[in-house]
Design a protein around this nucleic acid. Sequence first.
DNA 1: TATGAATGAGATTTCATTCAT
DNA 2: TATGAATGAAATCTCATTCAT
Lengths: 216, 216, 216, 216
Amino acid sequence: MPDSPPPATPSRKLDAEKTRQNILAVARQEFAEHGLSGARVDAIAARISTTKRMIYYYFGSKEGLYLAVLEQVYGGIRGLEMTLDLDRLTPIEALHQMVDFTFDYHEENPDFVRLVSVENIHHGAHLKQSEKLRNLNSSVIVSLATILERGKAAGQFHRDIDAVDLHMMISALCFYRVSNRHTFGTLFARDMGAPAVRDRHKGMIRDAIAGFVAGN
Amino acid sequence: MPDSPPPATPSRKLDAEKTRQNILAVARQEFAEHGLSGARVDAIAARISTTKRMIYYYFGSKEGLYLAVLEQVYGGIRGLEMTLDLDRLTPIEALHQMVDFTFDYHEENPDFVRLVSVENIHHGAHLKQSEKLRNLNSSVIVSLATILERGKAAGQFHRDIDAVDLHMMISALCFYRVSNRHTFGTLFARDMGAPAVRDRHKGMIRDAIAGFVAGN
Amino acid sequence: MPDSPPPATPSRKLDAEKTRQNILAVARQEFAEHGLSGARVDAIAARISTTKRMIYYYFGSKEGLYLAVLEQVYGGIRGLEMTLDLDRLTPIEALHQMVDFTFDYHEENPDFVRLVSVENIHHGAHLKQSEKLRNLNSSVIVSLATILERGKAAGQFHRDIDAVDLHMMISALCFYRVSNRHTFGTLFARDMGAPAVRDRHKGMIRDAIAGFVAGN
Amino acid sequence: MPDSPPPATPSRKLDAEKTRQNILAVARQEFAEHGLSGARVDAIAARISTTKRMIYYYFGSKEGLYLAVLEQVYGGIRGLEMTLDLDRLTPIEALHQMVDFTFDYHEENPDFVRLVSVENIHHGAHLKQSEKLRNLNSSVIVSLATILERGKAAGQFHRDIDAVDLHMMISALCFYRVSNRHTFGTLFARDMGAPAVRDRHKGMIRDAIAGFVAGN
DNA sequence: TATGAATGAGATTTCATTCAT
DNA sequence: TATGAATGAAATCTCATTCAT
């Protein structure tokens, strides 16, 4: 009785948070791998250290868990975007940096790409319904707007383009390579994961975007 | 009474084919709407005049039906691509035409876009497994290669680019707008379906591709 | 018009009988392989030259077909039994001959063995219901009775045994080897199909039966 | 109220095991009665207090359940065989005991006989696939080998016979009476279940085996 | 006589979720 | 807070049989 009483509330809370994160990490993989409908609560349960009941305890339902995954995953990229320090670079360098970041993030996070695809199959219903996600102010638009402004002021960019549209173009080029890797790769006999292909594509996209913004 | 008597013996066969096509059309919508896992055979059955049993009679399984849909849908775009007559146009006009076709096709066939997304969530497993689909050699690559060659010969294109890579860029820009419509539209408060937006994007993509291929 | 008009009714009938036999042969294999419940009408249909409809046309139902198979199969062994000519042999030789015939028939007709097993799983319901089968007078009992009588008269057999019981013993020993081949063979690591095993068993059974009937 | 309060925590686990056993017992009857293909999961469910869902919860599939039944049933006879204490008997008494045990077990457990027949219709596929069943080393072979050895040493047995072959003969004679009860009984107008018949057969088999092993 | 299409009924199996302790 | 057992509802799929011509 005198020795090692169970530590009080704080550790409990830590354990709880750890459990939550454990579930979330496994769920992310499952949802990314199989989609919302295709993922199995049982499969997630089988891979976590606690029991299936905890999923419902912490997240209420399969959809609740999916939403939490979505929030975590979008939070991740938004957080990283904010760490970009582009003001010290020239407009062209900053734009290259932006493209490189976007390219690398998609390349390195195929789960993110897949989850966004999944969410679009569901018409973005969960994203629309999540206050947290709707309020995610995307610093990337501000960053791009600043770059465009500075480039124009410097006489280097002549294209009249909206920052959101530019972001869409960059995203499209970086996203598709990963999202459509399997169909495109199969139909055109390309190994979309090969390093040489990746590097070539990165250069192409950088050039295309820079050339486009520069205008003529 | 005198007009349109039921056709004689062949009617049976026509009915069978009609039934098949009927199922296929409904299935396409369901799979596009809910994905492979999310689609319900019952829901498809409920929308056709025959019974659920017929689905299995004609397609063997839910996956067999999905595969048939995929084959039909890919066959559709490949068929249209072959009708493009670009040889009479200048290289620049031909490239514009190519972009316009690709843009319009994605814009007008969101089901195609969604089905391709769905297939990628499944790692392109069905596409890989279908001999019919693997043998679909895309005339679009030949067309693009010809355009690039002619443009270079005419001194109008300076970019050294592979036709497949160029096709990927065009596709990416046209696909993403539709595939990621919901998440992108929500996060950046854009109505991706608005005619004005559509026209602006079409111009942007045309310019970006033309500029890129021209090189500098 | 003058040349080769389709031959009239007789050929029709021959074709019909041929079709019937064709179906029957395939059905026998299917029922022997999978049992009554396990056999698939579709599988049988897929293997016959005519269509599935013919099965129902000729046999009425799956059960009707099964019954026809059963009748054919029992008719086969009963017919052969009647060709045995044992009267010219000594009682002991005749008994040996009887055992050899029974042994060989089971060994060479595993389908018969399997069908009888299947029918027993169904409590012999079809056999009981078939007038044709109930009326199959088994000459084997008469043959055995005669052998026993002659052997006793000759002072060679001392055992007081009923011909039906003797037939059961012979059948049991010959049937089990084939019917339980898979479980027995697996549990006791014996290859029940090996020629050496077969020959040894045949000798054993002959000896056991002869010894038993001789009495002591 | 005062008596038999529900047991505390372990009750859950006991209930689970009870549920499992309950399903197993009913399934045994169903599979014995209708075979693997003919048995209906619904029918099994209808006879137990819990729902059909539980069958899948505990056994995974219809085949899984069938396998569990098979393992239980084979375990049953093997377990009993091990309780035979034959060493204190004379070789001849021990052999009689062995035959009697085998005879009685088959007579009293027609479900076992039917299940073995069913499994043979399926080519022993499940037995072969079950590690548990493949590892059931049958003490009966050792017992028989010992009896044979002792009998020979005592100059009472002169037959050179393999214990496995001897086991096959005993099993065949005991198994067939039960397995082929319906067809044999019908074809030869014998009530195979009648006590008088049973006793006569038991004596016959005992004599036949003893006489065979004794040799002459 | 022959046939391809069709089908109702019911089979097995799956799944997210909740209960009892 | 935690857990193993349980479950209703619905999903996919199968099968012997019949229809329309």
